[in-house]
Design a protein around this nucleic acid. Sequence first.
RNA 1: GUCCCCGUAGCUCAACCGGAUAGAGUGCUUGGCUUCGAACCAAGAGGUUGCAGGUUCGAGUCCUGCCGGGGACACCA
Length: 592
Amino acid sequence: MRKKIGLILRKAMGGDAEVSIPENEKFGHYSTNVAMKLARGKKAAPRQRGEPCPAGRGNSLELAAELAAKIEKSAPAGFFEKVEVAAPGFINLWVSKKILRDELVSIFRQKERYGRSDVGRKKKVIVEYSSVNVAKPMHVGHLRSTVIGDALANVLEFAGYKVIRWNYVGDWGTQFGKLIAAYKRWGRKSEVEKSPIGELLSLYVRFHKKEVENPIFLKEGQEEFMKLEAGDKENRKLWRWFSKESMEEFKKVYGILGVKFDVVLGESFFEPFLKPLVERLYKKKIATESEGALVVNFDKFSAKKGLPPALVQKSDESSLYLTRDIANLEYRIKKYKPSGIIYVVGNEQALHFEQLFAIAGIIRLKNTKLAHVKYGLVLGEKGKKLSTRGGEAIQLEELLRKSVGLAGKIVEQKNPKLKAREKNAIAEAVGVGAVKYNDLKENRMSDIYFDWDKMLDFSGDSAPYIQYTHARLRSILRKAHKASGIQYPSFAKASVGKQVSSLDTDIEMALIRKIAEFPETVRRSAENFFTNNIARYLYELANLANKYYESTPILTDKNVDRRNVRLMLINSVAVVIKNGLGLLGIKAPEKI
RNA sequence: GUCCCCGUAGCUCAACCGGAUAGAGUGCUUGGCUUCGAACCAAGAGGUUGCAGGUUCGAGUCCUGCCGGGGACACCA
């Protein structure tokens, strides 16, 4: 709808104009500030300090009136109910009810396809997210990456991109040398088999403690990693085993979260590429020697001055995280030729990605747009970083189990008659949805504080609220099907035109305008890689829907035509909610 | 020390390219289940947007300086 108005404005004045939705309806359903923008452009003439601005208010108001007249003229007959000009130069627009009703019919006919677009035009995009580390449990930090990345992938797909979901697993590096060293000292096969991640973690933690006391342990770890990288048989075998056991456990968590990947590759995969890569960088004088190590010094490349130098090879000739990421990048671009790659990785790695992208520029990987979608840390209740080593990290499995358990209790209480199987499915959808939504609605850069109460709050601005609204809408629609034999497909035929005119109340019009915002909400999310606008949109829509069925009889409406179109309206709302939650990776059960 | 992110109601967060009276949730006070499901709805109180300047018709948003919190910064990932 906003797009349509944008087109009318463009026609009216031959240029693009920003269309916004005012918070207060007295300023219109839609509003534009072009007049003020244009007025500013005109009064570029220099003036004395302190002298009152010659253009400014009066001028932009006049211009607004002029434009408003043009807009009214070039809009289709009866499109706007009202066009008003307000100081200091806003043009406020009210869309007529007829246009809104037509919009609803169009939305209704599009069904599940409503909101999809082809802005991506099947272009390939790689979304890298989750990025778990072998031998370490998934915690709430991984949750952010996993949930945000998965939602972005959904959104991009919905916008017509061909998305490759990529899990880049941390399975290489000095830490594995330490782990191997620890296992060789204290490990037992049976213990690891019993609880792989738990046992590997405790070995790692134990080793880390020793390392702090005695640097000989650090050296031992580094040596084991060198052996691993050199292809030592025993170390390779251990490493393969650790990876396999860990991935099995991660799969369980991904199963609960309902997250799937197209490509799961470990850092280790790129190991064969590293030597030639480093040699190439050295030959081309991109990397230079410094204190025995190889370093990319950005000051030599005029475009990237000021970045701290980046290490690509240690003085013992072993590889680094960055080296592997460069290899990974080259590999992806060569194999998939994506138009963009999105890394969903925490804020704390900002420098790493700046350096990676700068190197990508230097070695001319320019046709692929690179984006680091960053997010704040998850902090403990006292504002401190949660450390895995200190055992403070809140483990993902525990969180999900608690949330699903709580949801289960509430379902038991509210809906005791349902079958156990159904109850479990609902508890999982609600419990997992609540946790996911919590991360997705606050997708800001700022750090977030982990709070159990907040995580497990199922009221207000939460996934369960939206799911509940959806379930109630579906419940009404189910009853309509059963009791009165109403058949939806008939709505999509000719009779709709007449019936739909009985939709008339303010809240009905507001609901139509709200569902009309869905496509642009999704588009914006795909453009700037945010998900919180979708979450907020869904909450607002659900809130409006809630008010609607609390205040307006639908199924019990005695006016049959009106009842039918009201059902049509809530059907469209339900479809949008379900689709929108789907984009966020959250299920919308029929009953809850 | 340098760089990145952040600072908005008691608490947790919104605010689309700078736009109109800064919005939600939660908590608190009050009202609503004999009517399509109360995980709900309605009403109220709650703010010098960290501080000081600047740009602008207009600043939470942009610029400069300061204060406060978090993070990164060569052999971790």
